[in-house]
Design a protein around this nucleic acid. Sequence first.
DNA 1: CGTTTCAATATGTATATACATAATCGTCAT
DNA 2: ATGACGATTATGTATATACATATTGAAACG
Lengths: 246, 246
Amino acid sequence: MNMTETAAVEGGGSLHQRILSDISEKILSGAWAPGFRIPFEHELTAEYNCSRMTVNKALSQLAKAGLIERRRRSGSFVRQPQSQAAVLEIHDIRIEVEALGLAYRYERVARQKRRSSAEDRGLLELGAAGQVLALECRHFAGKRPFAHEQRLINLAAVAEAGDEEFLDIAPGPWLIGRVPWSEAEHRIRAGGADRHIAEALDIATGAPCLVVERRTWSAEHPVTQVRFTYAAESHTLVARFRPSQG
Amino acid sequence: MNMTETAAVEGGGSLHQRILSDISEKILSGAWAPGFRIPFEHELTAEYNCSRMTVNKALSQLAKAGLIERRRRSGSFVRQPQSQAAVLEIHDIRIEVEALGLAYRYERVARQKRRSSAEDRGLLELGAAGQVLALECRHFAGKRPFAHEQRLINLAAVAEAGDEEFLDIAPGPWLIGRVPWSEAEHRIRAGGADRHIAEALDIATGAPCLVVERRTWSAEHPVTQVRFTYAAESHTLVARFRPSQG
DNA sequence: CGTTTCAATATGTATATACATAATCGTCAT
DNA sequence: ATGACGATTATGTATATACATATTGAAACG
């Protein structure tokens, strides 16, 4: 029963969590290098003086988190440094603006219900033609334009959107809660503002802007495609990486 | 034993995985709306004709994935649409370039070992003064500059880096595998190329560029800070979101 | 010498059971 | 009414046990 020596940084109370953090600490500190075979379940069982189920729970979680790889009959091994993945939190623009301590205002610039053009279908990755709703909006921080929004909504997936004017509520918040999204894809790039955008955002033509495009699916069906163009050159997205735990 | 009716889309074989995907399907399809109380463990136990441990395993995973919230004595509830989070894969530049089908080349522009300036300490979030290594590099795709790299390495954390010239290997790949990173933070923004960058990337001054800044820690100690400036205006980062499973 | 077969082994999944813990509800006394 | 208190309940964690499955290594065989 040498389980008192390591004492674990912070396990969360339960034994399997302590085992989990003990091991991930060893891996993250480099003490157990990639490729190293970590002790067998029955060895950890002895070391922590607990049942195999408890050890198994910890190791299974480590495997799912990608820190180790488990091989039957061979044991569990520390994985190679995985492809660096980070979690990007994408907040509603209202939240972002209010986090800056500024007043938020929303404005709908244009709205058009139309039969999908070839370009629309390309943007939505839509197979067949059908009705879409095209929206153009502005989001303000204080008195200044903060972001420009161009959006397509697939009315075949969200029929009710066709009856909404979006004068008082932005399409983003409207869609959330109404449509359960099951998948989303974001593309992030830098772009120079074209004349139209520059005018809408009250910035110079060609000024560098962060552009975020998002496509959303619900149960395999395309729901909406949106392009946000942010006015402030200094606007930043933050993505964090922190392995396992959670 | 009414477990044959739903048949689950694709569970992965094991029972607890089937329960997990059955339930997440109900949530993602909207059949069980946010706030809905999903069946108690003992009810699912009866429905799937299995032990509580098996149900518990599925529900615990759903809770950790953030799809449901569990409350003692009250039951388990579908969570409100969570803060939209996406997984951003950040690849090594060599990989990115080669994925474009172009030849990759690396060049070290400058290297300076120095005592950390106040600015260095700010960038690295370093408390005390100490030696740092400042690097400037270029990454090429074919014949054209692809990205510009400005990097600081905290020599207190990675002493060996002080002896490395980084003429043939980029600091990114060098650091990976040598230093176990435990935490990273990325900041992504659009910026106009200043004269120095524009010259290095062979683009116009003021051209919009995607700028990615990364800070890395290992066991609470700052390791490195790096700023990548991408030449191609069309260069995009892709982030995907797909709830639970794994 | 090469191939097949078989036993050993570590993990994967599931069970029945037990007790701990937190939250809620009803009861009872103030 | 209001508050204290204990019973009830669902989840949280852990155990011992069992069998399935994939993989390895060695023995048996042609």
